[in-house]
């Protein structure tokens, strides 16, 4: 277990630093739900709604869970803010992996990475997942959205 966790934790620490320092693309933000969580399992994320559509000027809150097998396994991602998107569960905000490209292809990409462990850029991270979701939102920007700030029942 310890052996398997080292790369996971190194990676998550690097992601955490990137998130806290705001070194990302500036369209999303993420960090630990509880900064004391030494297993770095529960994460919070926000997505700035993509412009020119019904998501414009909104901020969506999400939560993400990185299991023990991250990054081999994709994170589980839930919308906390209510959102009307196909593939997002209407009762708990869970994002269906098959609806977002990077989550759907996560295993395949991870397998590729295993062969070439030092790519120039890491294609699999919480940030790239959030950006992919944001892009997916942009593709569905015409869908009517619930009032901003409403959250799924279980998070109220």
């Amino acid at each position: 277990m310890a052996v398997a966790q080292v790369p996971r934790n190194f990676k998550l620490l690097a992601e955490l630093e990137k998130g806290e320092k705001g070194m990302g693309a500036g369209a999303c933000s993420y960090g630990l739900e509880d900064p004391e969580d030494i297993f770095m399992t529960h994460w919070r994320g926000t997505i700035w709604g993509p412009p020119h559509g019904n998501h414009e000027n909104r901020i969506y809150e999400l939560k993400m869970e990185c299991g023990p097998n991250y990054p081999r396994e994709p994170p589980e991602i839930y919308f906390v803010s209510q959102v009307n998107l196909p593939g997002v569960n209407t009762s708990d905000g869970r994002v269906d992996r098959n609806s977002v490209g990077i989550l759907r292809d996560w295993h395949r990409i991870a397998a590729e990475l295993a062969k070439n462990p030092r790519p120039k850029e890491d294609p699999l991270s919480l940030e790239t997942a959030l950006i992919a979701i944001r892009k997916y939102m942009d593709e569905n920007k015409k869908l009517p959205q619930p009032a901003e700030g409403t959250k799924y029942g279980i998070y109220r």
Partner: peptide, 8 residues
């Protein structure tokens, strides 16, 4: 709106 580490 201020956001730090993924939360509003």
């Amino acid at each position: 709106r201020l956001i730090y580490s993924g939360r509003i």
